[in-house]
Design a binder for these strands. Structure first.
Lengths: 214, 214
DNA sequence: GGCTCACTGATTGCATGCAACATAGGCAAT
DNA sequence: ATTGCCTATGTTGCATGCAATCAGTGAGCC
């Protein structure tokens, strides 16, 4: 048995990150309750969780909205991401197991293929594989607290469809970061891993701020 | 009009941090509803918020509990605090206004007096003043996201009654950190401020891990 | 004697009803 | 024409009822 509040939460989260609910869109409780086949109570509780995680903003008596990020927000968010992802990478270097590193290498290959210019290019698939890659890295950090905090700032790229803004050079650099991160993790070098990860996040930030969303 | 869910949230948070609800204690919804003069609905929503912030743990169908921190948890929490407080201090150095720095200096004096050995020593008052001191620093960072994340890890010292574990030398060092932080902020030196803050947090961590709680 | 299982009591999870509040539109007064 | 108020309407906030689930207990069986 899966709790209704969790169903609603996952659904809402996916829809916000996937762009189904655009920034600024109103999220009516009754509407969401009907859409998820539950009542308003679990919807309200899911909205509270998402509010704390920063994925929705709730105004008293005025309902919930998907926030729209200002450039200052994006700057702040990416700086936090750099800090937290870097710390997670450092922890991961001390803890990662060989099979996880192997899978990350595998994902590097898949990402490189899906990102390469040509008919087979599929940037949405890159986003998906990229999410798995970084998911493994975060899991290897073995810190629930860190993971929770990252959830609040990590998956914005999906909202923004970041990879569609990447130039071919950006994509090449991103793939190089991935390969280097795995190397640093295998070498058990936390400082190296943290440095690569920080560069990786900051380069993503540069892409996003270079050509601001909408 | 203040929302019931916010009342319950503040009350619960204060009671957990203040030690009214000891780690491991069960938090029954009906009990909390009666204690706060509201119904179970706002209690449930407040518990969801506190769950995301890591201040309570909720098991499905089994209710909410105050988590009890293992030494590994404490290590993790203090490392995160170091990161986030350091980042906040760096931002604060670029933004703080003179009157806030003045108040922080004032608080330094009050803390030093209340922390000094003798009849006037009052470690609970030190904790209170210390919270205001760091509250100003965090507010000067002007980052709601950072503040929210810090809330999840910052105020554990209150639970642990940390200052009661401090030796006279620890207290002296803590006060010196405070003075130095204000100097770094006034100098608008973000790196200095971050470094002092990291030292401050890590020294607190050392005290806590030196003599583990209960 | 130890183990299993059903029953009991209590608690959580969810649905729904009602009251409080906020926004929008119309109407009147200046 | 503009401003202010007032009502209408939809929404949120909260209380409560009921079903689902879990911990504990004791009887029955191996």
């Amino acid at each position: 048995m899966v709790l209704a509040v969790d169903r609603v939460y996952e659904r809402l989260r996916a829809d916000i990150l996937g762009g189904v609910h655009q920034p600024g869109a109103r999220l009516g409780e009754a509407e969401l309750a009907e859409a998820t086949g539950s009542s308003r109570t679990p919807v309200r509780e899911a909205l509270r969780r998402l509010e704390v995680e920063g994925l929705v903003e709730v105004l008293p008596h005025r309902g919930a909205r998907v926030p729209d990020w200002t450039p200052e927000d994006l700057e702040e968010i990416y700086d936090l991401r750099m800090l937290l992802e870097g710390a997670a990478a450092r922890r991961a270097a001390a803890r990662i197991e060989a099979k996880d590193a192997d899978r990350m290498d595998e994902l590097c290959g898949l990402i490189e293929w899906a990102a390469a210019p040509g008919d087979q290019q599929d940037l949405d698939r890159v986003a998906e594989l990229n999410a798995e890659f970084h998911g493994i890295a975060r899991a290897a950090a073995a810190s629930n607290r860190l993971v929770t905090m990252l959830n609040a700032v990590v998956q914005l790229p999906l909202v923004m469809r970041t990879f569609h803004r990447y130039s071919p050079d950006d994509l090449t650099r991103s793939c190089a970061h991935h390969r280097e991160l795995v190397a640093a993790l295998r070498a058990r070098d936390g400082t190296w891993a943290e440095s690569v990860m920080r560069a990786h996040v900051l380069s993503a930030k540069a892409v996003l701020l270079r050509d601001p969303p909408s």
